Simulated scan of single mutants.
Amino acid sequence: MATYGYARVSTTDQDLTIQREALKAAGCEVIREEKISGISRQGRKELETLLEFLRSGDTLVVTRLDRLARSMDDLSSIVRELQSTGVSLRATEQPVDTSTAAGRAFFQMLGVFAEFETNLRKERQMEGIAKAKAKGVYKGRKPSIDVAEVKRLRNEEGKGATEIAKQLGIARTSVYRVLHEI
């Protein structure tokens, strides 16, 4: 029976020190860390490595449930995976311990609130973008394709879509899209 920790922050400029110290204080022998969004499990290699490594009787410790997942679906999926292998989950800052009935109930309530918070944040972000667009401040992402260069390569040099795509380092479908607009 071993105790493992998992620490996560969403962006590379955020610091993991506080989580790391809390996990060490909780008795974690190994701590896996990553700086990546928790909205989905995709690309979270440290979490996947840890989930594959855990064995029956082990405990996974996080500081808060939102460090493990941001959606109730992902959180439930991870906990089901842990439970199927006999691993319990504990949070240092929340009364969550899936080895007890009360801990499991509290886990589910916190998971719902974490997802609700994420959805509220998305709504506020979309409202902010809509206001910025109305004011003419938000223009979206800058174009990554030089339309004039695509047209020049086609019209002046007679190059095909594949050659243009290779030369400019863009997808061939993007070249076709530009050429279709001519």
Rank of each mutant, 00 (worst) to 15 (best):
E33Y: 04
S77A: 10
L65I: 15
A25C: 02
K159T: 00
C28V: 11
V137M: 09
D13P: 03
A134L: 12
S10P: 08
V150D: 07
E149F: 00
G43Y: 11
G140V: 11
V79A: 09
L68N: 06
Q125W: 02
F113E: 06
H180Q: 14
K151H: 10
S88A: 14
D66W: 09
Q167L: 15
T100Q: 05
M72E: 11
F106R: 03
G169M: 07
A91Y: 07
R32F: 15
R20Y: 14
L47R: 05
T173A: 11
A148L: 11
R152I: 05
P143N: 12
R55S: 14
V61Q: 06
R55D: 12
I78P: 10
L50G: 08
E34I: 03
G43W: 01
D13L: 13
V79Q: 12
T162E: 11
F106T: 15
N119G: 06
A114I: 13
A22V: 03
T173F: 05
A102D: 14
R152F: 11
K142W: 00
I18Q: 13
K135L: 15
E115L: 06
E157C: 01
I39H: 09
E181Y: 01
P143I: 08
D97R: 04
T173Q: 12
S144N: 11
A7W: 07
K122F: 09
E156L: 05
V178G: 09
S56A: 14
L54S: 07
E52L: 10
R41P: 02
S71F: 04
K24C: 00
Q42D: 12
A105L: 15
T162H: 04
M1C: 03
F106D: 00
R67V: 09
K133Q: 15
G158Y: 09
E46P: 01
S144A: 14
Q125N: 09
T162R: 13
T162K: 13
G128H: 05
D146W: 04
G57L: 09
K35G: 05
T98D: 10
Y138D: 04
R44K: 01
G160Y: 11
R20Q: 14
T92C: 08
V9A: 04
R55I: 00
R141P: 06
S77E: 13
R90P: 02
L51G: 05
R67H: 04
Q94M: 14
T12K: 12
L65R: 02
D58Q: 03
E29W: 01
D146Q: 04
S84Q: 14
Q108I: 01
R8Q: 12
G38M: 09
T49D: 13
L153T: 05
D66N: 09
I164M: 02
P143H: 08
L50Y: 06
A132T: 11
I31Y: 03
A132Y: 09
L16M: 07
S71A: 03
E29Q: 13
T17S: 15
C28R: 10
M1E: 10
C28Y: 04
P95I: 07
G160S: 09
